[in-house]
Design a protein around this nucleic acid. Structure first.
Length: 275
DNA sequence: AGGCAGGTTCTTA
DNA sequence: TAAGAACCTGCC
């Protein structure tokens, strides 16, 4: 089905923005489209022209899932408009360069595991580990003729039931015990990620930091990408370089609240692939 | 071959 | 309480 999207929406930039790991470009140059997997859903999205996109799902699934996943109720062009070129030219340039990025509304469980795995790994390695984990413990949700089979992201119960040997086979390295413990915590009910969504920012951060293998950076990624709290500002090596090089007097968080996380995405994407 | 990659935990003083 | 080392694995 065809969807008209007028706000910022660039699949390639979203794919490279580091917030999602099951987003893949496929097809020929002229027939380019993106394969997107989230939890137990999968869709192909193809750009037809400036504002029109073809989704491989029906209207019902778009309305009930993907519309929310792509965060279509928020205007990212309005958020970009808050940036004053005369006050922060670097951020302005980053936002122009990253125009089209949106913060996806992803699942807290999937994001928690994904970002625990992400530590001290590069993006291709993160994606490879997640795909192995999905193939090992997820369910087949799409036969994926041209791009390989697509599996759902495993439930906490499924991961909790894996042996350490099976987890190791996903190239998790020393993170295998973190993933295993997180799965046990959630499957047993000791950790209730849905309920955590109702907590204050401070309480949510406090709870996340108690999890084995979760430090400040991973917790902030979970808050921003898993809970879609757009003011969270994860500081990784790339953002640290940006802050050191361009913000010695400090980044003006107060100017962009409650959307500092969106600014973080522009800075991250710009520093990695642009200037 | 040695260093490093979207960090966190563990060990020392 | 705070630095510094250790950590899996894969890829230059």
């Amino acid at each position: 089905m065809i969807i008209e999207i007028k706000d910022d929406f660039d699949l390639g930039k979203i794919a490279d923005s580091g917030q999602c790991f099951r987003f893949n470009k496929c097809g020929e140059e002229s027939q380019e489209h993106y394969s997107v997997a989230a939890l137990d859903k999968h869709v192909l999205v193809k750009k037809l022209d400036e504002n029109r996109y073809e989704f491989s799902c029906d209207q019902k699934e778009y309305d009930s899932f993907w519309k929310n996943y792509f965060d279509m109720d928020i205007s990212y062009s309005d958020i970009r408009a808050r940036i004053d070129k005369t006050k922060d030219e670097y951020l302005y340039n980053a936002s122009e360069y990253g125009k089209g990025i949106r913060i996806l509304r992803q699942d807290p469980w999937e994001m928690l595991i994904s970002f625990i795995i992400s530590q001290r790994k590069n993006i291709p390695a993160i994606k490879a580990s997640i795909e192995k984990l999905c193939a090992l413990a997820g369910n087949e949700i799409d036969e994926g003729k041209e791009f390989g089979k697509i599996y759902s992201f495993p439930t906490p119960e499924k991961i909790a039931a894996l042996s350490m040997e099976q987890l190791s086979s996903c190239s998790l390295g020393y993170r295998d015990k973190y993933v295993h413990q997180a799965a046990l915590d959630v499957a047993s009910g000791a950790v209730d990620l849905d309920r955590w969504g109702k907590l204050s920012d401070e309480e949510l951060m406090e709870n996340l930091l108690k999890l084995f293998g979760v430090g400040v950076k991973v917790a902030n990624c979970e808050i921003l990408f898993g809970y879609h709290r757009l003011d969270a500002f994860p500081i990784d090596v790339w953002i640290k370089k940006v802050l050191d090089a361009h913000y010695q007097k400090g980044f003006s968080f107060e100017s962009y609240a409650p959307f500092n996380g969106v600014m973080q995405q522009y800075l991250f994407f710009y520093s990695r692939t642009g200037g």
